[in-house]
Amino acid sequence: MFVKSKQWVLSMLCFLLVILLAGCVGYSPKSDFELVEGEKKINKGTIAVIAGSGSEVDIKLAHEITRQLTENTNLTVFSQEELNKRMPQYPMFFMKSQESETDQWSIRPSYLSEENKKSLKKIQEKLGAEYILLAWAEGISYWENGVSESCIFSFISGKKCKLSVPCRVVKYPENRVIASYNYKDRYYSSSLYSFNQVIDKFLVKASRQISEQFTTVVLDESMLINTGEK
């Protein structure tokens, strides 16, 4: 009896250790990329992924989404280095706050303020891109400890963060938002990682989700490297 309970304790300890080392658990986001009614999927063209600000979070998102789109689609994607060459001030803090943007009760999901549209148009004029995917982080928060929410691992895995990333796809020369995504997610991670590492992993996950959603919903099948033709 004693041996059996000892084995049980040991296996539980191993289980806990595996969870601690494995580290990260996330939720699947609930929303999707949406094509604005009447708009067609993109089947050719050039695209630039623009960071909404010069913050480290936005820069990371823009780099990762650019990488994903370059690797997985036949679109001509401007590299972030190319953007910097053409606009020495990029990445820059050009967007004005529009926090109500992600409030989907009262404002349509594809909302982009006129002021921000104008600023983005100036960027587009320097690039000549046919499409811009604008992404910026709103309301990133992080905390540690405590049993919280519905994640069964949350009492063990100590670090948590929350992030929302509004994305807009704008078509030029029409200067019209043709698709949008208000990505929101939570991320749980082991205490073994620093908050910086946790947030970095979270941003990579968010970028992958955003680019996968973009290729599925906004891009024509022929533009996918694995399934389409060049």
Binding site: E56, Y142, F195, N196, I199, D200
Partner: peptide, 9 residues
């Protein structure tokens, strides 16, 4: 820095 989200590494 390697990371600079919460503090600077």
């Amino acid at each position: 820095w390697k990371f600079a989200y919460v503090d600077i590494e």
